[in-house]
Design a protein around this nucleic acid. Structure first.
Lengths: 244, 244
DNA sequence: AAGTGGTCTAGACCACGCG
DNA sequence: GCGTGGTCTAGACCACTTT
Protein backbone atom coordinates (compact mmCIF):
# COMPACT_ATOMS: atom_id res chain seq x y z
CA UNK A 1 0.00 0.00 0.00
CA UNK A 2 3.03 2.25 0.13
CA UNK A 3 2.32 3.54 3.60
CA UNK A 4 4.89 5.59 5.41
CA UNK A 5 4.85 5.40 9.15
CA UNK A 6 6.95 8.55 9.51
CA UNK A 7 9.76 6.02 9.19
CA UNK A 8 10.73 4.97 5.73
CA UNK A 9 9.67 7.63 3.26
CA UNK A 10 9.59 5.93 -0.08
CA UNK A 11 11.47 7.36 -3.00
CA UNK A 12 10.01 9.97 -5.28
CA UNK A 13 6.64 10.98 -3.91
CA UNK A 14 7.11 14.65 -4.61
CA UNK A 15 3.45 15.19 -3.90
CA UNK A 16 3.97 14.04 -0.34
CA UNK A 17 6.55 16.74 0.34
CA UNK A 18 4.25 19.38 -1.13
CA UNK A 19 1.34 18.01 0.89
CA UNK A 20 3.31 18.10 4.15
CA UNK A 21 4.64 21.57 3.40
CA UNK A 22 1.17 22.96 2.85
CA UNK A 23 -0.20 21.07 5.85
CA UNK A 24 2.43 22.60 8.10
CA UNK A 25 1.61 26.06 6.80
CA UNK A 26 -2.03 25.43 7.64
CA UNK A 27 -1.23 24.09 11.11
CA UNK A 28 0.95 27.10 11.83
CA UNK A 29 -1.68 29.50 10.62
CA UNK A 30 0.38 30.79 7.70
CA UNK A 31 -2.55 29.74 5.55
CA UNK A 32 -5.35 30.81 7.92
CA UNK A 33 -8.72 29.07 8.16
CA UNK A 34 -11.06 30.42 5.52
CA UNK A 35 -8.29 31.71 3.25
CA UNK A 36 -7.41 30.31 -0.17
CA UNK A 37 -4.23 28.41 -0.94
CA UNK A 38 -2.05 29.47 -3.85
CA UNK A 39 -3.61 28.26 -7.09
CA UNK A 40 -2.63 24.91 -8.53
CA UNK A 41 -0.66 26.61 -11.28
CA UNK A 42 1.28 28.66 -8.76
CA UNK A 43 2.05 25.57 -6.71
CA UNK A 44 3.40 23.99 -9.89
CA UNK A 45 5.81 26.89 -10.35
CA UNK A 46 6.79 27.05 -6.68
CA UNK A 47 7.79 23.40 -6.51
CA UNK A 48 8.69 22.89 -10.18
CA UNK A 49 6.13 20.10 -10.62
CA UNK A 50 3.26 19.38 -12.99
CA UNK A 51 -0.45 19.87 -12.37
CA UNK A 52 -0.92 16.14 -11.81
CA UNK A 53 1.48 16.17 -8.88
CA UNK A 54 0.18 19.39 -7.41
CA UNK A 55 -3.39 18.12 -7.66
CA UNK A 56 -2.43 14.84 -6.01
CA UNK A 57 -1.02 16.77 -3.03
CA UNK A 58 -4.21 18.83 -2.77
CA UNK A 59 -6.40 15.75 -3.15
CA UNK A 60 -4.67 14.21 -0.15
CA UNK A 61 -5.27 17.34 1.92
CA UNK A 62 -8.88 17.21 0.76
CA UNK A 63 -9.22 13.62 1.98
CA UNK A 64 -7.64 14.56 5.30
CA UNK A 65 -10.15 17.36 5.72
CA UNK A 66 -7.73 20.28 5.66
CA UNK A 67 -9.18 21.98 2.59
CA UNK A 68 -12.15 22.04 0.27
CA UNK A 69 -12.01 22.90 -3.41
CA UNK A 70 -14.24 25.42 -5.10
CA UNK A 71 -14.41 25.21 -8.85
CA UNK A 72 -13.42 28.50 -10.41
CA UNK A 73 -12.32 29.97 -7.08
CA UNK A 74 -9.62 27.97 -5.36
CA UNK A 75 -8.80 25.66 -2.46
CA UNK A 76 -10.11 26.95 0.84
CA UNK A 77 -8.61 26.11 4.22
CA UNK A 78 -11.11 24.40 6.53
CA UNK A 79 -11.46 24.18 10.25
CA UNK A 80 -10.38 20.60 10.51
CA UNK A 81 -12.54 19.39 13.37
CA UNK A 82 -15.58 19.80 11.13
CA UNK A 83 -14.63 17.07 8.77
CA UNK A 84 -13.53 14.31 11.08
CA UNK A 85 -16.86 12.55 11.17
CA UNK A 86 -16.33 11.71 14.79
CA UNK A 87 -19.22 11.67 17.16
CA UNK A 88 -19.84 15.11 18.48
CA UNK A 89 -22.30 16.51 20.93
CA UNK A 90 -24.86 18.54 19.06
CA UNK A 91 -23.90 22.02 20.08
CA UNK A 92 -20.21 21.40 20.65
CA UNK A 93 -19.49 21.99 16.99
CA UNK A 94 -22.55 23.87 15.81
CA UNK A 95 -22.55 25.91 18.99
CA UNK A 96 -23.68 29.19 17.51
CA UNK A 97 -26.50 29.48 20.00
CA UNK A 98 -24.96 27.58 22.86
CA UNK A 99 -22.43 28.52 25.46
CA UNK A 100 -19.87 25.75 25.74
CA UNK A 101 -17.54 25.46 28.70
CA UNK A 102 -14.97 22.91 29.78
CA UNK A 103 -13.79 22.43 33.35
CA UNK A 104 -10.66 20.44 34.13
CA UNK A 105 -11.64 18.28 37.11
CA UNK A 106 -8.30 16.50 37.36
CA UNK A 107 -5.25 18.03 35.72
CA UNK A 108 -3.00 15.75 33.68
CA UNK A 109 -0.88 13.66 36.01
CA UNK A 110 0.95 10.34 35.98
CA UNK A 111 -1.40 7.54 37.01
CA UNK A 112 -1.98 3.85 36.47
CA UNK A 113 -3.72 2.63 33.35
CA UNK A 114 -7.35 2.14 34.32
CA UNK A 115 -9.20 -1.10 33.82
CA UNK A 116 -12.19 0.91 32.64
CA UNK A 117 -10.51 1.58 29.29
CA UNK A 118 -12.60 -0.38 26.83
CA UNK A 119 -9.95 -1.03 24.18
CA UNK A 120 -6.84 -3.17 24.55
CA UNK A 121 -3.60 -1.22 25.01
CA UNK A 122 -0.60 -1.68 22.74
CA UNK A 123 2.46 -3.48 24.11
CA UNK A 124 4.49 -0.27 24.38
CA UNK A 125 1.68 1.51 26.18
CA UNK A 126 1.24 -1.10 28.87
CA UNK A 127 4.84 -0.63 29.96
CA UNK A 128 4.80 3.15 29.59
CA UNK A 129 3.77 5.75 32.11
CA UNK A 130 0.15 6.76 31.80
CA UNK A 131 -1.08 10.35 31.77
CA UNK A 132 -4.64 10.76 33.00
CA UNK A 133 -6.91 13.77 33.04
CA UNK A 134 -10.60 14.30 33.66
CA UNK A 135 -12.86 17.03 32.36
CA UNK A 136 -16.49 18.07 32.60
CA UNK A 137 -18.12 19.73 29.61
CA UNK A 138 -21.03 22.13 29.83
CA UNK A 139 -23.61 23.45 27.39
CA UNK A 140 -25.54 26.51 28.53
CA UNK A 141 -24.01 26.06 31.99
CA UNK A 142 -25.46 22.57 32.31
CA UNK A 143 -23.00 19.70 32.74
CA UNK A 144 -23.50 17.39 29.75
CA UNK A 145 -20.46 15.16 29.48
CA UNK A 146 -17.99 13.66 31.91
CA UNK A 147 -14.69 12.83 30.25
CA UNK A 148 -11.87 10.47 31.29
CA UNK A 149 -8.73 10.56 29.14
CA UNK A 150 -5.52 8.53 29.06
CA UNK A 151 -2.40 8.53 26.91
CA UNK A 152 1.17 7.24 27.13
CA UNK A 153 3.64 9.79 28.48
CA UNK A 154 6.43 8.30 26.36
CA UNK A 155 4.54 9.33 23.23
CA UNK A 156 3.85 12.94 24.08
CA UNK A 157 5.02 14.30 27.50
CA UNK A 158 2.86 15.49 30.33
CA UNK A 159 0.74 18.42 29.19
CA UNK A 160 0.10 21.26 31.63
CA UNK A 161 -3.36 22.83 31.69
CA UNK A 162 -1.82 26.02 30.28
CA UNK A 163 -0.63 24.06 27.28
CA UNK A 164 -4.19 23.45 26.07
CA UNK A 165 -4.77 25.82 23.14
CA UNK A 166 -8.26 27.24 23.55
CA UNK A 167 -8.94 24.39 25.94
CA UNK A 168 -8.68 21.86 23.13
CA UNK A 169 -6.46 18.82 23.32
CA UNK A 170 -6.63 18.21 19.57
CA UNK A 171 -5.79 21.80 18.66
CA UNK A 172 -2.78 21.55 20.94
CA UNK A 173 -1.65 18.35 19.25
CA UNK A 174 -1.98 19.90 15.82
CA UNK A 175 -0.54 23.34 16.37
CA UNK A 176 2.17 22.59 18.93
CA UNK A 177 3.22 19.06 18.02
CA UNK A 178 1.99 18.74 14.41
CA UNK A 179 0.15 15.56 15.32
CA UNK A 180 -3.22 14.91 13.67
CA UNK A 181 -6.06 12.57 14.49
CA UNK A 182 -6.11 9.90 11.82
CA UNK A 183 -9.09 7.89 13.00
CA UNK A 184 -10.94 6.37 15.89
CA UNK A 185 -12.71 3.29 17.12
CA UNK A 186 -15.77 3.74 19.28
CA UNK A 187 -18.14 1.68 21.33
CA UNK A 188 -21.46 2.98 22.60
CA UNK A 189 -23.60 1.74 25.42
CA UNK A 190 -26.71 2.99 27.14
CA UNK A 191 -26.14 2.56 30.86
CA UNK A 192 -27.64 3.60 34.18
CA UNK A 193 -25.59 6.39 35.74
CA UNK A 194 -23.39 5.38 38.65
CA UNK A 195 -22.89 7.67 41.63
CA UNK A 196 -19.86 9.50 40.23
CA UNK A 197 -21.51 10.16 36.87
CA UNK A 198 -24.82 11.12 38.43
CA UNK A 199 -23.16 13.58 40.79
CA UNK A 200 -21.17 15.27 38.06
CA UNK A 201 -24.03 15.48 35.58
CA UNK A 202 -26.67 16.41 38.14
CA UNK A 203 -28.77 13.30 37.56
CA UNK A 204 -30.32 10.65 39.75
CA UNK A 205 -28.39 7.43 40.12
CA UNK A 206 -29.70 4.88 37.63
CA UNK A 207 -30.90 7.36 35.00
CA UNK A 208 -29.93 6.41 31.46
CA UNK A 209 -26.68 7.93 30.20
CA UNK A 210 -24.74 7.29 27.03
CA UNK A 211 -21.35 5.73 27.62
CA UNK A 212 -18.91 6.26 24.72
CA UNK A 213 -15.54 4.54 24.66
CA UNK A 214 -13.09 5.92 22.11
CA UNK A 215 -9.60 5.05 20.97
CA UNK A 216 -8.19 7.87 18.85
CA UNK A 217 -5.32 7.02 16.52
CA UNK A 218 -2.93 9.83 15.64
CA UNK A 219 -0.28 10.49 13.00
CA UNK A 220 2.26 9.53 15.68
CA UNK A 221 2.05 5.72 15.71
CA UNK A 222 3.09 5.63 19.38
CA UNK A 223 0.32 7.99 20.49
CA UNK A 224 -3.25 6.92 21.05
CA UNK A 225 -5.78 8.75 23.15
CA UNK A 226 -8.20 6.64 25.12
CA UNK A 227 -11.39 8.30 26.31
CA UNK A 228 -14.36 7.15 28.31
CA UNK A 229 -17.25 9.59 28.05
CA UNK A 230 -20.54 9.71 29.93
CA UNK A 231 -23.20 11.90 28.34
CA UNK A 232 -26.56 13.22 29.37
CA UNK A 233 -28.33 13.05 26.01
CA UNK A 234 -31.80 14.08 27.12
CA UNK A 235 -31.46 17.64 25.85
CA UNK A 236 -28.47 17.37 23.50
CA UNK A 237 -28.31 14.12 21.58
CA UNK A 238 -25.05 12.88 20.09
CA UNK A 239 -24.80 13.43 16.37
CA UNK A 240 -22.88 11.76 13.65
CA UNK A 241 -22.84 12.19 9.90
CA UNK A 242 -21.21 10.16 7.25
CA UNK A 243 -20.99 10.96 3.57
CA UNK A 244 -19.11 9.48 0.69
CA UNK B 1 -19.07 21.34 -7.88
CA UNK B 2 -20.00 19.53 -11.06
CA UNK B 3 -22.47 17.24 -9.35
CA UNK B 4 -24.79 15.10 -11.35
CA UNK B 5 -28.08 14.23 -9.78
CA UNK B 6 -28.74 11.45 -12.25
CA UNK B 7 -30.19 14.31 -14.26
CA UNK B 8 -27.74 16.49 -16.11
CA UNK B 9 -24.60 14.53 -16.82
CA UNK B 10 -21.97 17.06 -17.63
CA UNK B 11 -19.99 16.81 -20.81
CA UNK B 12 -16.87 14.73 -21.05
CA UNK B 13 -16.35 12.84 -17.80
CA UNK B 14 -15.34 9.62 -19.48
CA UNK B 15 -14.18 8.31 -16.15
CA UNK B 16 -17.73 8.52 -14.83
CA UNK B 17 -19.05 6.19 -17.54
CA UNK B 18 -16.27 3.72 -16.82
CA UNK B 19 -16.94 4.00 -13.09
CA UNK B 20 -20.67 3.35 -13.51
CA UNK B 21 -20.04 0.46 -15.90
CA UNK B 22 -17.73 -1.27 -13.44
CA UNK B 23 -20.03 -0.50 -10.53
CA UNK B 24 -22.96 -2.13 -12.31
CA UNK B 25 -20.86 -5.19 -13.03
CA UNK B 26 -20.04 -5.42 -9.33
CA UNK B 27 -23.65 -4.95 -8.28
CA UNK B 28 -24.77 -7.66 -10.70
CA UNK B 29 -22.08 -10.04 -9.50
CA UNK B 30 -20.28 -10.13 -12.85
CA UNK B 31 -17.25 -9.04 -10.88
CA UNK B 32 -17.86 -11.15 -7.74
CA UNK B 33 -16.82 -10.12 -4.25
CA UNK B 34 -13.20 -11.06 -3.64
CA UNK B 35 -12.29 -11.24 -7.32
CA UNK B 36 -9.95 -8.85 -9.12
CA UNK B 37 -11.05 -6.31 -11.71
CA UNK B 38 -9.33 -6.19 -15.09
CA UNK B 39 -6.00 -4.41 -14.74
CA UNK B 40 -5.76 -0.69 -15.29
CA UNK B 41 -3.98 -1.22 -18.59
CA UNK B 42 -6.71 -3.55 -19.81
CA UNK B 43 -9.37 -1.04 -18.82
CA UNK B 44 -7.46 1.53 -20.87
CA UNK B 45 -7.67 -0.68 -23.94
CA UNK B 46 -11.31 -1.68 -23.34
CA UNK B 47 -12.54 1.90 -23.19
CA UNK B 48 -9.82 3.53 -25.30
CA UNK B 49 -8.73 5.87 -22.54
CA UNK B 50 -5.47 6.74 -20.80
CA UNK B 51 -4.23 5.49 -17.44
CA UNK B 52 -5.14 8.81 -15.81
CA UNK B 53 -8.79 8.38 -16.73
CA UNK B 54 -8.93 4.70 -15.83
CA UNK B 55 -7.29 5.40 -12.48
CA UNK B 56 -9.72 8.23 -11.78
CA UNK B 57 -12.63 5.84 -12.29
CA UNK B 58 -11.08 3.28 -9.95
CA UNK B 59 -10.25 5.95 -7.37
CA UNK B 60 -13.92 6.88 -7.26
CA UNK B 61 -14.92 3.26 -6.72
CA UNK B 62 -12.29 3.10 -4.00
CA UNK B 63 -13.79 6.13 -2.26
CA UNK B 64 -17.24 4.60 -2.52
CA UNK B 65 -15.99 1.43 -0.91
CA UNK B 66 -16.56 -0.94 -3.84
CA UNK B 67 -12.94 -1.97 -4.27
CA UNK B 68 -9.55 -1.90 -2.62
CA UNK B 69 -6.26 -1.69 -4.47
CA UNK B 70 -3.34 -4.01 -3.86
CA UNK B 71 -0.03 -2.80 -5.17
CA UNK B 72 1.42 -5.37 -7.53
CA UNK B 73 -1.73 -7.49 -7.54
CA UNK B 74 -4.79 -5.61 -8.68
CA UNK B 75 -8.09 -4.06 -7.61
CA UNK B 76 -10.15 -6.38 -5.46
CA UNK B 77 -13.93 -6.23 -5.16
CA UNK B 78 -15.08 -5.64 -1.58
CA UNK B 79 -18.21 -6.52 0.30
CA UNK B 80 -19.57 -3.02 0.38
CA UNK B 81 -21.30 -2.93 3.75
CA UNK B 82 -17.91 -3.19 5.42
CA UNK B 83 -16.75 0.21 4.34
CA UNK B 84 -19.74 2.37 5.03
CA UNK B 85 -18.59 3.50 8.44
CA UNK B 86 -22.14 3.50 9.65
CA UNK B 87 -22.95 2.46 13.15
CA UNK B 88 -23.28 -1.26 13.33
CA UNK B 89 -24.05 -3.63 16.13
CA UNK B 90 -20.94 -5.48 17.11
CA UNK B 91 -21.69 -8.91 15.81
CA UNK B 92 -23.99 -7.90 12.96
CA UNK B 93 -21.03 -7.43 10.67
CA UNK B 94 -18.26 -9.35 12.38
CA UNK B 95 -20.68 -12.12 13.22
CA UNK B 96 -18.35 -15.06 12.75
CA UNK B 97 -19.22 -16.43 16.16
CA UNK B 98 -22.75 -15.11 16.46
CA UNK B 99 -26.02 -16.27 15.03
CA UNK B 100 -27.88 -13.33 13.61
CA UNK B 101 -31.59 -13.42 12.85
CA UNK B 102 -34.12 -10.87 11.69
CA UNK B 103 -37.86 -11.15 12.24
CA UNK B 104 -40.28 -8.96 10.32
CA UNK B 105 -42.81 -7.81 12.93
CA UNK B 106 -44.81 -5.66 10.54
CA UNK B 107 -44.51 -6.21 6.81
CA UNK B 108 -44.10 -3.16 4.59
CA UNK B 109 -47.44 -1.40 4.21
CA UNK B 110 -48.78 2.05 3.43
CA UNK B 111 -49.08 4.08 6.62
CA UNK B 112 -48.92 7.65 7.85
CA UNK B 113 -45.61 9.36 8.43
CA UNK B 114 -44.92 9.00 12.13
CA UNK B 115 -44.15 11.90 14.39
CA UNK B 116 -41.44 9.82 16.02
CA UNK B 117 -39.16 10.30 13.02
CA UNK B 118 -36.34 12.48 14.36
CA UNK B 119 -35.34 14.19 11.13
CA UNK B 120 -37.41 16.64 9.08
CA UNK B 121 -38.96 15.18 5.92
CA UNK B 122 -38.40 16.68 2.49
CA UNK B 123 -41.28 18.52 0.82
CA UNK B 124 -41.92 15.72 -1.66
CA UNK B 125 -41.94 13.12 1.06
CA UNK B 126 -44.54 14.86 3.21
CA UNK B 127 -47.04 14.67 0.37
CA UNK B 128 -46.07 11.15 -0.70
CA UNK B 129 -47.39 7.85 0.56
CA UNK B 130 -45.33 6.41 3.34
CA UNK B 131 -44.15 2.81 3.51
CA UNK B 132 -43.57 1.52 7.03
CA UNK B 133 -42.08 -1.71 8.28
CA UNK B 134 -40.89 -2.97 11.62
CA UNK B 135 -38.27 -5.60 12.39
CA UNK B 136 -36.67 -7.23 15.39
CA UNK B 137 -33.04 -8.30 15.20
CA UNK B 138 -31.54 -11.10 17.23
CA UNK B 139 -28.03 -12.13 18.14
CA UNK B 140 -27.63 -15.65 19.53
CA UNK B 141 -31.44 -15.86 19.71
CA UNK B 142 -31.65 -12.87 22.01
CA UNK B 143 -33.59 -9.85 20.76
CA UNK B 144 -31.11 -6.97 20.56
CA UNK B 145 -32.61 -4.29 18.36
CA UNK B 146 -36.11 -3.08 17.57
CA UNK B 147 -36.29 -1.33 14.21
CA UNK B 148 -38.84 1.09 12.75
CA UNK B 149 -38.36 2.06 9.10
CA UNK B 150 -40.06 4.52 6.77
CA UNK B 151 -39.60 5.57 3.15
CA UNK B 152 -41.61 7.32 0.44
CA UNK B 153 -43.49 4.92 -1.84
CA UNK B 154 -43.14 7.34 -4.75
CA UNK B 155 -39.38 6.86 -4.64
CA UNK B 156 -39.23 3.09 -4.62
CA UNK B 157 -42.54 1.11 -4.60
CA UNK B 158 -43.84 -1.10 -1.85
CA UNK B 159 -41.41 -3.93 -1.19
CA UNK B 160 -42.78 -7.36 -0.36
CA UNK B 161 -41.03 -9.44 2.31
CA UNK B 162 -39.98 -11.86 -0.43
CA UNK B 163 -38.18 -9.02 -2.18
CA UNK B 164 -35.62 -8.73 0.61
CA UNK B 165 -32.41 -10.31 -0.68
CA UNK B 166 -30.94 -12.32 2.19
CA UNK B 167 -33.18 -10.31 4.49
CA UNK B 168 -31.25 -7.15 3.74
CA UNK B 169 -32.94 -3.94 2.65
CA UNK B 170 -29.66 -2.42 1.43
CA UNK B 171 -28.67 -5.47 -0.59
CA UNK B 172 -32.07 -5.35 -2.24
CA UNK B 173 -31.62 -1.69 -3.11
CA UNK B 174 -28.20 -2.34 -4.61
CA UNK B 175 -28.79 -5.54 -6.52
CA UNK B 176 -32.36 -5.06 -7.66
CA UNK B 177 -32.63 -1.29 -8.06
CA UNK B 178 -28.96 -0.24 -8.37
CA UNK B 179 -29.44 2.26 -5.56
CA UNK B 180 -26.57 2.78 -3.12
CA UNK B 181 -26.39 4.35 0.31
CA UNK B 182 -24.48 7.58 -0.05
CA UNK B 183 -24.46 8.72 3.56
CA UNK B 184 -26.41 9.13 6.75
CA UNK B 185 -27.19 11.47 9.60
CA UNK B 186 -27.63 9.98 13.02
CA UNK B 187 -28.69 11.05 16.48
CA UNK B 188 -28.07 8.95 19.56
CA UNK B 189 -29.78 9.07 22.89
CA UNK B 190 -29.67 6.94 26.02
CA UNK B 191 -33.27 6.48 27.13
CA UNK B 192 -35.33 4.40 29.53
CA UNK B 193 -37.17 1.64 27.66
CA UNK B 194 -40.88 2.23 27.18
CA UNK B 195 -43.35 -0.64 27.36
CA UNK B 196 -43.21 -1.56 23.66
CA UNK B 197 -39.42 -1.57 23.57
CA UNK B 198 -39.12 -3.40 26.88
CA UNK B 199 -41.55 -6.11 25.76
CA UNK B 200 -39.79 -6.70 22.46
CA UNK B 201 -36.29 -6.71 23.90
CA UNK B 202 -37.18 -8.67 27.01
CA UNK B 203 -36.24 -5.89 29.41
CA UNK B 204 -37.86 -4.19 32.35
CA UNK B 205 -39.59 -0.90 31.63
CA UNK B 206 -37.21 1.95 32.42
CA UNK B 207 -33.98 0.07 31.75
CA UNK B 208 -31.45 2.04 29.71
CA UNK B 209 -31.59 1.45 25.95
CA UNK B 210 -29.78 3.18 23.12
CA UNK B 211 -32.10 5.06 20.79
CA UNK B 212 -30.58 5.68 17.34
CA UNK B 213 -32.33 7.89 14.80
CA UNK B 214 -30.98 7.62 11.27
CA UNK B 215 -31.69 9.29 7.97
CA UNK B 216 -30.04 7.37 5.15
CA UNK B 217 -29.41 9.23 1.90
CA UNK B 218 -29.27 7.16 -1.27
CA UNK B 219 -28.06 7.64 -4.82
CA UNK B 220 -31.70 8.26 -5.72
CA UNK B 221 -32.27 11.85 -4.56
CA UNK B 222 -35.96 11.14 -3.96
CA UNK B 223 -35.29 8.18 -1.69
CA UNK B 224 -34.34 8.50 1.96
CA UNK B 225 -34.74 5.79 4.53
CA UNK B 226 -35.72 6.92 8.01
CA UNK B 227 -35.03 4.54 10.86
CA UNK B 228 -35.64 4.64 14.59
CA UNK B 229 -33.72 1.91 16.38
CA UNK B 230 -33.84 0.80 20.01
CA UNK B 231 -30.89 -1.30 21.15
CA UNK B 232 -30.06 -3.36 24.17
CA UNK B 233 -26.34 -2.60 24.38
CA UNK B 234 -25.58 -4.43 27.63
CA UNK B 235 -24.05 -7.43 25.89
CA UNK B 236 -23.39 -6.10 22.38
CA UNK B 237 -22.30 -2.48 22.31
CA UNK B 238 -22.65 -0.41 19.16
CA UNK B 239 -19.41 0.05 17.28
CA UNK B 240 -18.16 2.66 14.91
CA UNK B 241 -14.82 3.21 13.26
CA UNK B 242 -13.57 6.09 11.25
CA UNK B 243 -10.31 6.29 9.37
CA UNK B 244 -8.85 8.72 6.92
C1' DA C 1 -11.28 38.38 -20.47
C1' DA C 2 -8.60 36.43 -16.99
C1' DG C 3 -7.93 33.14 -13.46
C1' DT C 4 -9.36 29.12 -11.09
C1' DG C 5 -10.09 24.10 -10.70
C1' DG C 6 -11.76 19.69 -13.68
C1' DT C 7 -10.82 16.45 -17.29
C1' DC C 8 -7.91 14.16 -20.56
C1' DT C 9 -4.00 12.61 -23.64
C1' DA C 10 0.39 9.93 -24.51
C1' DG C 11 3.73 8.77 -22.96
C1' DA C 12 7.79 7.31 -19.07
C1' DC C 13 9.89 5.06 -15.11
C1' DC C 14 9.42 3.04 -10.37
C1' DA C 15 7.90 -0.26 -6.59
C1' DC C 16 5.54 -4.37 -5.36
C1' DG C 17 3.94 -9.48 -5.73
C1' DC C 18 4.59 -13.73 -7.61
C1' DG C 19 6.18 -17.62 -10.08
C1' DG D 1 10.93 -11.47 -15.51
C1' DC D 2 6.55 -10.10 -16.00
C1' DG D 3 2.34 -7.98 -14.80
C1' DT D 4 0.30 -5.12 -11.42
C1' DG D 5 -0.57 -0.57 -9.42
C1' DG D 6 2.05 4.16 -8.01
C1' DT D 7 4.23 8.36 -9.46
C1' DC D 8 5.37 11.87 -12.75
C1' DT D 9 6.02 14.85 -17.02
C1' DA D 10 4.32 18.33 -20.49
C1' DG D 11 1.24 19.57 -22.46
C1' DA D 12 -4.25 20.59 -24.03
C1' DC D 13 -8.99 22.01 -23.62
C1' DC D 14 -13.25 22.64 -20.77
C1' DA D 15 -16.29 24.58 -17.02
C1' DC D 16 -16.97 27.76 -13.39
C1' DT D 17 -16.33 32.37 -10.96
C1' DT D 18 -15.17 36.96 -10.84
C1' DT D 19 -13.99 41.50 -12.81
Amino acid sequence: MCLDKSTGLKKKRKYYKVQEYIKKNIQQGIYPIGSYLPSEHEICKQFDITRTTARKALDELLKEGFIEKEHGKGSKVLERSKSLGLLTVKGFTEAANHKVKTIMLLEPKIDNWSSSIAFPLKQDEVHANCVYFQRLRYINNKPIMLEHNWYAEEALELLKPDDFIEGSFFKTLSQKYFIEIKGSKQELRAEPANKEVANNLGLEEGQAVLHISICFKTSNPALNLYSELYCNTSEFPIRNSYFL
